[in-house]
Amino acid sequence: MSIRACLDTIAAYGLRSIGIGERLLPKRDFTLCEHFTLIGSGLLWNLYFGILAIFFGFFLANAIAMAKANRRWWLRKPAEWFIFVFRGSPLFIQFFLFYEAFVLLPKMGWDINLGFTEITVETRWLTRAWLGALIVLILNTTAYSAEIFYGALKSIPRGDIEAADAYGLTGWKRYKRIIWPTMLRLAWPAYTNEAIFLFHATTLVFFSGFPAWRQKGDALYYASYFADKTFNPFVAYPILAGYFILLTLSVITVYGAINRRLNRHLPQEKQRRLRVRPNVIR
């Protein structure tokens, strides 16, 4: 297996998952290079779903967590129910129910004039993974993150809030300056875990949720394609696992960097204590 042949494979299949390159998938005599290229190409979808869902979910989760912590019942109750339903049911059931609902929608299109150009929005897109599954993932991660943020809100040291009161900070200012940063700092380790889980959950999109069009799927889709053709699960799935370990490590690195930034005002000594494992027993 020469490097040149592998480069050809990468050129042909590197972007296969988004429909660029060779249309037909390899059929026999699979090389390791083909395994790595196609599964890696599928990883683009996992990144797409994961990054967008976390991005939109973050803002929504802040709002929902605030609503759940609110004194007014008409804000609190819907937030509590939203979190309960989405945290309380398996993701694949959510995929199934949403897909069933989306295909029932009448197939319509609206023309939206943006001034310089006109685009058509169609309900048909909701049955496609890139939009439908993304919506489900956003709602799912919103519920989990909102619960984490809510838990953090509840564990903000009373002293911090009392100090803010004593300085005359109220309303929005108190929220922005004291409550929100403290909440985020407390929630961050758990939120890191949620991000890891979400990236893992993106493998369910094509596995038990939405149909794959023109053999464009995520990393697991191609891994199971190879496993089906070679009847050998011991090559494709470990490669998939390897990719995901790298992905998880990058998530941990990015979130760790943000965590350090969130804690940068803390006394240096305490910061170091957080990073280096204290030698508790000797």
């Binding site: 697991l220 891994a223 011991f234 370990i245």
Partner: peptide
């Protein structure tokens, strides 16, 4: 912990049981 947490449970289940 690092390796097992890094792999989606679904991928793990697909080959680990046979192994």
């Amino acid at each position: 912990t690092a390796v097992v947490r890094g792999v989606p449970d679904i991928a793990f289940f697909l080959f680990f049981v046979i192994a």
